[in-house]
Nucleic acid binder design. Structure first.
Lengths: 204, 204
DNA sequence: AAGTGTGAAGCAGTTCACAGCA
DNA sequence: TGCTGTGAACTGCTTCACACTT
């Protein structure tokens, strides 16, 4: 099944497997079976094995998967084998909370700069990252950042995103409740806290 | 097609339609076509019509959908026609950012209390919500809250969630990077910022 | 003329069952 | 014996085409 077209759903599960592998490694395990890995992710063993089978033969029958090696494989597939740089735009409450978040490192991600329009905030440091003037957004290309986290007010989101694309940003994590219009080569992931909470009552 | 079993994917799109309807209403439109609504959500018109067809006949041929009426229908389906109460646990950076978020109201959601373990924070008010001692979590049942937002450190997440379920919480918005183990009647939505950002490099 | 509602076709992802390997 | 890898069956969602309504 190697080298076939990879189902989108499989790709979406890979980060979950990676997170589970971090957890398994912390427990001190060096081998893990598809069944155990599946349990941490909330799927079945056959789903795990099928997903991996699209990329090659990762495991050893009768034994399972070597945790460290599998981790590297998935990191490589997800392009997390080399460090990726991200910038944050909008250093309000939510932006500052994201800057203080320490969980990016294990994915080889680094926030290298933050931007805001508020003169009060410019020059200040939040969690070791200096807030720069949003008018200086062109410096993003020199920093080599390809990812952006957008935590600005909704009214300016589309405008900011247009500028980000101009300076070479290819992936956007959008915390505003606006649908962003971007060219095909740019990927957007939306996190809409209000909508996510509003999705729950249906199921209860 | 009315009264058939509703596809899960359809349910997941309903909050997106609702958000789009809020936007359309703000523009002052009172009617909207499936094609226009689809554009705001990023799907095709036939998808919108098919989704709505599971619930009944919502539109008028040649005209479109009445914005206000359709909004009410979707709110009813999603159980957002009456106010739902939520509590927040963990008033750190991220928790405070969520408390200051003003986008819950239009979904008929209200954060009625916040909890933290830090004695320094207890008694303080953040965005009009008083921080209470996490030891007093049982007061949640008196408040009538059924939803919870969990922004505590990962190490205590599972423990906190166990307590929340004991006091009647049925839906959880989980911001920690831990998989929560909950009974079948409890629904969890996970937001893992690190993992979400880590998903982007594959596509670029 | 414009736009909805839906049966049927097509496609993608999930699940199964089991052969094969350590 | 235990666990992986995978063709084949199955399931469910998406897409289409068009009859029907205003």
């Amino acid at each position: 099944m190697r080298y076939a077209r990879i189902p989108d759903q499989t790709i979406r599960r890979l980060p979950l497997y990676l997170r589970a592998l971090f957890f398994v490694a912390e427990q001190g395990q060096s081998e893990v079976s598809s069944k155990d890995l599946a349990q941490y992710v909330g799927v079945h063993g056959w789903q795990v094995r099928k997903d991996f089978s699209f990329f090659g033969e990762f495991g050893r029958p009768g034994v399972g998967y070597r945790v460290s090696w599998l981790t590297e494989q998935i990191k490589t597939i997800l392009r997390l084998d080399s460090e990726k740089k991200a910038v944050l735009v909008g250093a309000g409450n939510l932006g500052a909370a994201v800057l203080s978040f320490s969980g990016f490192q294990k994915y080889n991600l680094a926030i290298v700069a933050a931007f805001d329009a508020d003169a009060e905030k410019i020059g200040q440091r939040v969690s070791g990252v200096e807030i720069m003037d949003i008018a200086c957004l062109e410096s993003v290309s020199e920093l080599g950042a390809t990812l952006a986290i957008v935590t600005v007010p909704g009214e300016v989101a589309q405008d900011v995103v247009g500028q980000l694309i101009n300076v070479g940003i290819k992936g956007i994590l959008n915390f505003t409740s606006c649908r962003l219009i971007v060219p095909d080569q740019v990927r957007v992931t939306n996190i809409d806290i209000g909508m996510d909470l509003a999705s729950l009552p249906y199921y209860i």
